[in-house]
Amino acid sequence: MSGNEVRFDGRSILVTGAGRGLGRAHALLLASRGAHVVVADSGVEMNGAGGDVAVADAVVDEIRSAGGTAVACAADLASEDGSIRAVASCVESFGRLDAIIHNASSVPRPLPVERLSSAEFDLCMRVNVYAGFWLTRAAWPHMAERGFGRIVYTTSGAMYGSAGAIAYAAAKSAFIGLARSFAVAGKPHGINVNVLAPSARTRMHGTGDPTTPYMDWLLRTMVAEKVSIGAAYLVSEECDFSGEVLSFEGGHISRVTLAENEGFFGPGESIEEVRDAAPAVLADSRYVHPRTLNERMLWSAEMFGVAESLDAAKVWR
């Protein structure tokens, strides 16, 4: 391991959902390493109800008491105006915006499909994906002007599928496409956009018997601070990759990736062909990992033997 400490002196970082749980841990760590931090949290419950500015203020007080620099922002990220105001609070307070960790989230009640309301689905999408888009769009000119930016979206293991968290899984999965596309757009401007997939014991997990082996392990090992080191690295100058999804849980770090296998090549003329090809299509082998749509198109063209006639860069940029 390198002996050079990763620092954020002179950097201004906006952390959403920073009043509690993971966001609070992110804010405290970044401030302890020299960052000026905007603690953005409206203090609402996980379902979007209520609101309490004291939630963000408490974290700001904690940072300042330790000698750090922070300001609170209680803007409602479920609205476009609120997301824009959160970005503006960083620029107005510190004169710049270098990074965003979008950790805020809305978590609908675990309900059967037929009882999941459109309102709950919409709120989950707005606080997660829409806010991620609004925050990034508002921050983009500030980052592009300086030739530097770091943006991190927070996904979830629910992206693998969860019958009890359909809206949440949909919202968290959307971050992958958002980040990979912004990563392509940000490359000429020095803006890296990545996704954090955390596993940590927070209020989202509810309560459980701490004497059971699982809960005991969860409480001891899956702590927020072991995720925050990953979030901090992803917004550091030393992070030189973009468009990736990294999982952090209790000291375990791994890469989550989109992949496509070689599959089956045939004339593509009948339903029966698809039926018969299914075993080969579902085979867990010979994967490729396109990083952009361009790479996916070039790979397909190569498989069909027409790559030389395709200038993908002129089709999709």
Rank of each mutant, 00 (worst) to 15 (best):
M1N: 14
V6W: 00
R7W: 05
F8T: 00
D9I: 08
S12F: 07
S12N: 11
L14V: 10
V15S: 02
G17T: 09
G17N: 08
G21Y: 06
G23T: 11
R24S: 02
R24E: 13
A25N: 12
A25W: 07
A27D: 06
L30T: 02
A35T: 03
D41V: 02
E45F: 07
E45D: 14
G48F: 05
A49P: 01
A49N: 11
G51A: 04
G51W: 05
D52M: 04
D52E: 07
A58G: 06
V59R: 03
G67T: 05
A70E: 00
A74G: 06
D81I: 09
A86M: 08
S93Y: 06
F94S: 07
I101M: 12
R109N: 13
P112D: 07
E114W: 12
A119L: 07
E120T: 01
E120P: 01
M125E: 06
M125C: 07
V127F: 05
V129M: 06
R137L: 07
A139W: 09
P141C: 09
E145A: 15
R146N: 05
Y153S: 02
A158Q: 07
A165W: 03
A167H: 02
Y168E: 03
A170E: 01
S173I: 01
F182N: 01
A183W: 00
N192L: 10
L196F: 13
S199G: 15
M204G: 09
P210N: 05
T211E: 14
M215R: 14
M215V: 13
T221E: 12
V227Y: 10
V227K: 02
G230F: 09
A232E: 09
A232C: 09
Y233F: 15
L234F: 09
E238Q: 14
D240G: 03
E244I: 00
S247W: 11
F248K: 12
G250P: 12
I253T: 15
V256D: 10
V256N: 10
G263F: 13
F264I: 11
F264H: 15
G268W: 13
E272F: 08
P279H: 05
P279W: 04
V288I: 13
H289C: 00
R291G: 06
N294Q: 14
E295M: 01
R296K: 13
R296T: 02
A301D: 10
E302D: 15
M303R: 15
G305M: 09
E308M: 00
E308W: 03
S309M: 13
W316M: 14
R317V: 13
